[in-house]
Structures are given as C-alpha cells and as structure tokens.
C-alpha cells in the first residue's frame, strides 16, 4: 500500500509536469485561446461582472496579450487561482500566463523557476481595520487578531513586521480574498492585511466602507508583476513587451481611441515602430507587425486601463502614485522600442 501511494504520487507529479514544455506561443495559437490565471475575485483587478464577464486591471493585461497573439481580446480563458494554487497552475501548464497581483521576489523568480514580465503595479502591504477599534497606526496592533491570505508574501512580511517592532499577533489563515472579507466583517479578526490596492478594492466592496479605515503604514514593497514559466524566452518576451507597449503607449499618447488614426503613420518614429508602420518588430518574436496596435486597442494604454478599473473615478479610487509615468514622477518606464 505504501508503494502504491508513493507511485501514485509520482504518477500525478509526472503527468502534471508533462505539460510543461517549451513553445507556449505555438500551443496558444494552436488552441486559439489564451489560458490566463487570475484571482478568484478581487474587484478592480480581476472579478466577473454582473454579466459574468471578467473585468479588471489584471484581466485587461490578459486581454491585451490575447489581442497581440491571437488578434482577439475575447479569446481568453480565465482560470481563477488562489494564493495557494497559482504557482502550481502555472508550473504545470494549466495557465500560459499568470496575471494575479503576484509579488516579484527573488525566490519566486529564481527558485520557483518563473520569469516575471515587469512590474504592472507598484504596491505595498497595508492594514484594514474596523473604525470603532480606534486604531490609527499599525504600531498599535500589538496583540491583535489578523486575517491573512495564506501562501502569500504578505504572510511573511507580517511576521517580520511584528518581530521587528517587538509586537505579537494572532494570525488567522484564510484562502481567498472573499473568505477574508467575510471573516473580517464577521469580526473574526481585528485587522485584514494584504496589498494596499487589494485593501482599497475590498473596502470599496463593503456595504459600509466609511466604517473601515486603511492604516497609513505600508510595511513592505510589493511590486506586482505578471509572470510566465522559466525556459520559454520567446513567450516571456511577448508578455514583457506587451506590457511595455501599454506603458509606452501612455507615454506617447497612443490611446484606444486614436491608435487606428496614429497607425496610418506619424512624425514620431517610435510611435510608428510600436504600431508597426515602420520596421517589423513583431516578426522578431513570431508575431505580425500590428501586435501592439491590437494590444492597445483591446483595453487602451496603461493609463486608460488604470483609470477604468482602479483609478480615482472608480469605487476603488486609487491614485496613480508610484504607478505614474516616469515623466510624472512615477516609476513606470518602458525601455525603448527599437
């Protein structure tokens, strides 16, 4: 019986790993659909709307890649993953691309064998607390019960923050953001901690957002980045430069509205290179010249995607902050298209 179990496990592992092979671009083209790993539901980043259509910041990136590769932003299959299942889903080949507000860390990049495509949101970990607790700073949380999504970097940051500040806390491990919201609002924990953007989204989803406050402390750096498997550089390049195209498009003023107009040719050679009217950058990684044009038309440039999903006019109401263009004092900086 012992042996059978052992070999059963090996079998499962063998089959899982069997799908992980090079040539993701060909696989996706043959399938005619991009499998994109997203969260199980975080309003603003990735959540199904009232009609069952996935929308959000991360979702828009998946759609841009699908538009670039397949020519149709709707040809995406969204695979909801939890903090626990996301890496297995990507490593096993269940998804081609993971756009699930995942923090770029050394060990994930190096040890878990993933390739991060570039930061699409500069975030930091914060705390959401009930207003009636009277807490105004994270330093006052000594002894508090804190809900935390398991399998995340936030779990480790939290332990470190409380250790450094010589405070104690009681962790309550939860699996998904929805579960966290429910536990937190039922009063099963005093504070809920995750990336500040996620907290803003969570707070916006409450019936009484005014009764909850996000504490001013940001206790960690959380560069959120989409990622792919190690070992398929062509596929990684496609993802990386799709993201860069969206960022560069904002910098050069290419929007979903004027992209077609600009694609007829402009005075600016870089815009022409991005939109495929000059040179043939797409061919270098196996796509046609209009790949970036389609990616930008799918949901707009980075700024449009930000504004539509999580910007200040949405219920989530996040300011651009660090996520502004480098010309505006932010950190977004696309390498040149040439």
């Amino acid at each position: 019986m012992n042996k059978q179990l052992f070999f059963g496990a090996l079998a499962a592992a063998g089959m899982l790993a069997g799908f992980a092979s090079a040539g993701t671009l060909d696989d996706v083209k043959a399938r005619g659909e991009l499998n994109c790993g997203v969260t199980t539901g975080l309003v603003g980043f990735a959540a199904p709307d009232a009609n069952g259509q996935w929308t959000g910041f991360d979702v828009s990136f998946c759609r841009a890649v699908a538009a670039a590769v397949l020519g149709d932003p709707t040809k995406v299959k969204f695979v909801p993953t939890t903090g626990q299942t996301r890496f297995t889903a990507l490593a096993s080949g269940e998804v081609d691309l993971l756009a699930r507000n995942t923090t770029w860390t050394f060990s994930r990049d190096v040890d878990l064998k993933f390739t991060f495509l570039g930061v699409n949101y500069y975030d930091g970990q914060g705390f959401l607390v009930h207003k009636d607790l009277g807490v105004t700073s994270a330093k006052e949380l000594d002894g508090a019960t804190i809900c935390i999504q398991t399998g995340t970097t936030t779990e480790l940051n939290l332990a470190e923050y409380f250790k450094v500040n010589n405070m104690s806390y009681k962790p309550v491990a939860i699996e998904t953001n929805a579960e966290g919201e429910q536990q937190y609002s039922a009063g099963a924990c005093d504070a809920y901690t995750t990336d500040a953007s996620g907290l803003a989204a969570t707070r916006a989803a409450f019936a009484d957002p005014e009764n909850h406050i996000i504490l001013p402390e940001i206790i960690s750096k959380e560069p959120l980045a989409p990622l792919v498997r190690h070992g398929d550089d062509q596929w990684a390049d496609i993802g990386r430069w799709t993201l860069n195209a969206l960022i560069a498009a904002e910098e050069f003023g290419i929007t979903s509205a004027n992209a077609d107009e600009l694609a007829k040719g402009t005075e600016n050679p870089e815009i022409n290179r991005i939109l495929g009217t000059e040179g043939d950058l797409g061919a270098m990684f196996g796509l046609d010249p209009q790949w970036a044009l389609r990616a930008i038309k799918a949901g707009g440039n980075y700024g449009e995607i930000f504004a539509a999903n999580i910007g200040e006019s949405t219920p989530i109401g996040l300011a651009r902050g660090l996520n502004a263009q480098w010309t505006q004092g932010g950190l977004l900086y696309s390498p040149p298209f040439r």
């Binding site: 070999f7 090996l10 079998a11 592992a13 063998g14 089959m15 790993a17 069997g18 992980a20 092979s21 490593a91 064998k113 190690h230 070992g231």
Partner: peptide
C-alpha cells in the same frame, strides 16, 4: 509502467530545473 512514471517525473523535474 511504474518505471516509466518515475522516469517521466525525474525527467520533467530536470526539465523544470528542479
């Protein structure tokens, strides 16, 4: 069959660099 599965798992782990 078992040998094939073990071999497959080892090879795939190797491919993944794990």
């Amino acid at each position: 069959g078992v040998a094939w599965l073990v071999d497959n798992a080892i090879q795939n782990l190797h491919t993944l660099g794990k």
